[in-house]
Each structure stands twice: as structure tokens, then as C-alpha cells.
């Protein structure tokens, strides 16, 4: 039973990490006031570009860097549309989703369905990994997981304890007041959108460089949408995003296990569990029957146009 639980927990961590990069990136982007609905497509581009590089060069570090570069470029394009041209963020996100899923399939055509020679393998951390239960859950993972252990505290610290994080929070609430103070609102938004896209491509790379060593069209299978949902669910706080991701991952893994432990229920109903749980959790955490100041960045999805000031 213990091994069962540890194994579910370890698996939930792996699952959570693969969506957390995108979700935390999107938290930054939305805190800056820009919503990106195209996460799924951008993840695919990340998965494809990373795999493509590793397939041709067998250099994992290079693949990781290429993935980030692709994310930055996509972010630049998205920021140009939404920040400079002030295009509607919802449509832009959908357009990116469609465009990127097409482009990833198109560019990745030559390497579809073939395995690469190398992938990121789990690295047990000496000492820590031999702690019973905890070691197995937390310290026999791969580099993406360990990196996430750093990303979580750093992102929380950045948002709540630094000057730049303070400006980020203000940016999503009231860009005009920052603009008045002489801060380049547009440059900040460009920066955060690009950062978010780079994080999203890393999420994609998790799937093609660590989960498997393989690329196939549409292989992210809806993870981008889950990451997107996680953002509002987390009330724009990375700490809650972590909880949400673990909850979603845990429940979906548990769902498959339930087929073994509680047979007789059609398996599709177990498949529905994580989605239903998300709705319930969303209602509990954000429902307005809890008298609280709304956490949603006030300027989210609002075009910022100096001339409207």
C-alpha cells in the first residue's frame, strides 16, 4: 500500500511539473494583463522543436535552449499582436493555437514517430533519494522536476517580495498609473509574455524530452488547456497553481487506478473525475459567496492604449 501511494505521488509530481511550467508562465503573463489562450499550441511547438534538436544533435542541453528560444520568438509575435496592435487576446490565443499546432505538425513531419537516442533520465539525488517514501517521491526524478523545485519558490519570491514583482502586480491592476510614473508598460508586457511563452515551451519539452523520447502531432493532448485553467484556479498565485496541478494530476492518476480497485464503473466516468474536480475546486476557491477582494488582475484582457487615458 505504501509503495502504491508513493508511486502515485511520484507520478502526480511528474504530471504536475509538465503543466506547471506553462501555468506559472501564464500566471506571470496574466499578472501583466495579457491572457494567452494558445498555450496548447505553444507547448506543441516546444515539444517539437526540442525533440527535433535532440534527434539531430543528440544534445539535450542544446535542445532545451532551442526550446526556450522558440518560446521567446513565439512570445515576441504574440506580444506584438496583443500589446502593440492591441488585438483581442482571446482570438489571438485561438489563432496561435491553430497556427502553432499546424506549424508543429508541419515542421516536425520528418521526425514523427521515431525515437531519439537520448532523453532526460531520472537522476536520483545521492543521499536524499534513499530517504524512505520521501526520497522516492521527490528525489528520484529528472531535471525538469528538480528545476521546478527552484522555479516555484523563486516565482513566489519574485512576485511578492521584489520590486520587479511589485511592478508586475501593479501592471495587471492599473497599467496607466505605471505609465504615468514613467515605466515602460509596453516593454514590461513584452517581457512577461515572452517569458510565459518560453515557460510554456519548456512544458512541451517535458513531454518530448523527458516523458518520452518521441514526437507526434498533437501529443500534448489537452495539457495546455489544463495549464490555462490552472491559472485562474490558482488565483494568480504560483503556490496554489502547484496545489492545483498536484490535485489534477493526482486525481487523473487515481482515476486510472480506480479501474483496478473499484471495477464495474465505466472507465470513462473515472476519466471525467479530474475535470469535475477542477470545476468543484474552482467554485470553492473563487465563488463569490466567499466575501473576498477579487484576485483577478483588473486589467486582464484589457487593451492598454495610451490615447484612451
Amino acid at each position: 500500500m505504501i509503495s502504491f501511494i508513493t508511486s502515485i505521488c511520484a507520478a502526480a509530481i511528474v504530471y504536475a511539473v509538465s503543466i506547471l511550467y506553462a501555468a506559472i508562465g501564464e500566471i506571470f503573463s496574466q499578472r501583466a494583463g495579457i491572457m494567452n489562450l494558445g498555450i496548447e499550441g505553444i507547448m506543441l511547438m516546444g515539444a517539437m522543436s526540442g525533440f527535433m534538436t535532440v534527434y539531430h544533435t543528440e544534445n539535450l542541453l542544446l535542445a532545451f535552449l532551442v526550446t526556450i528560444l522558440v518560446g521567446l520568438l513565439l512570445g515576441l509575435a504574440f506580444a506584438f499582436l496583443t500589446v502593440t496592435l492591441q488585438a483581442d487576446q482571446t482570438v489571438c490565443g485561438m489563432a496561435f493555437l491553430i497556427f502553432c499546432s499546424g506549424l508543429s505538425g508541419f515542421l516536425g513531419k520528418s521526425v514523427t514517430g521515431i525515437a531519439s537516442a537520448v532523453k532526460f533520465e531520472p537522476i536520483p539525488i545521492p543521499g536524499l533519494s534513499s530517504i524512505p517514501v520521501i526520497g522516492e517521491i521527490f528525489f528520484q526524478q529528472d531535471i525538469f522536476v528538480y528545476l521546478m523545485y527552484l522555479v516555484i519558490p523563486l516565482s513566489i519570491f519574485y512576485i511578492y517580495k521584489t520590486k520587479a514583482g511589485l511592478m508586475l502586480r501593479a501592471l495587471g491592476e492599473n497599467p496607466a498609473s505605471l505609465d504615468q510614473a514613467g515605466i515602460n508598460v509596453f516593454a514590461m508586457r513584452y517581457g512577461y509574455v515572452m517569458f510565459a511563452c518560453a515557460m510554456t515551451t519548456i512544458s512541451g519539452a517535458c513531454i518530448s524530452l523527458s516523458y518520452t523520447n518521441f514526437w507526434n502531432e498533437g501529443m500534448t493532448g489537452g495539457k495546455g488547456w489544463i495549464a490555462f485553467s490552472l491559472v485562474a484556479f490558482s488565483r494568480w498565485n504560483p503556490a496554489y497553481a502547484v496545489l492545483g496541478a498536484l490535485l489534477f494530476g493526482g486525481i487523473s492518476i487515481l482515476g486510472i487506478n480506480m479501474q483496478v480497485y473499484l471495477p464495474g464503473v465505466p472507465s470513462q466516468f473515472y476519466g471525467m473525475l479530474p475535470y469535475a474536480a477542477t470545476v468543484v475546486a474552482l467554485v470553492i476557491t473563487t465563488g463569490s459567496f466567499r466575501k473576498k477582494h477579487s484576485e483577478e488582475p483588473a486589467a486582464l484582457c484589457q487593451k492598454y492604449d495610451r490615447e484612451d487615458r
Partner: peptide, 20 residues
């Protein structure tokens, strides 16, 4: 390749959005 149509669709959308 079959993906080109998806890409055209995305490009058209982005173009129209930018045109707004």
C-alpha cells in the same frame, strides 16, 4: 502536407486580427 491548411487557417486569423 496536410498541416499546411491548419497553418493557413491560423495565418489568416492572425492577419485579420492584426488588421483590426
Amino acid at each position: 502536407p496536410s498541416q499546411i491548411v491548419t497553418m493557413i487557417q491560423g495565418t489568416l486569423m492572425i492577419s485579420v486580427i492584426a488588421g483590426e
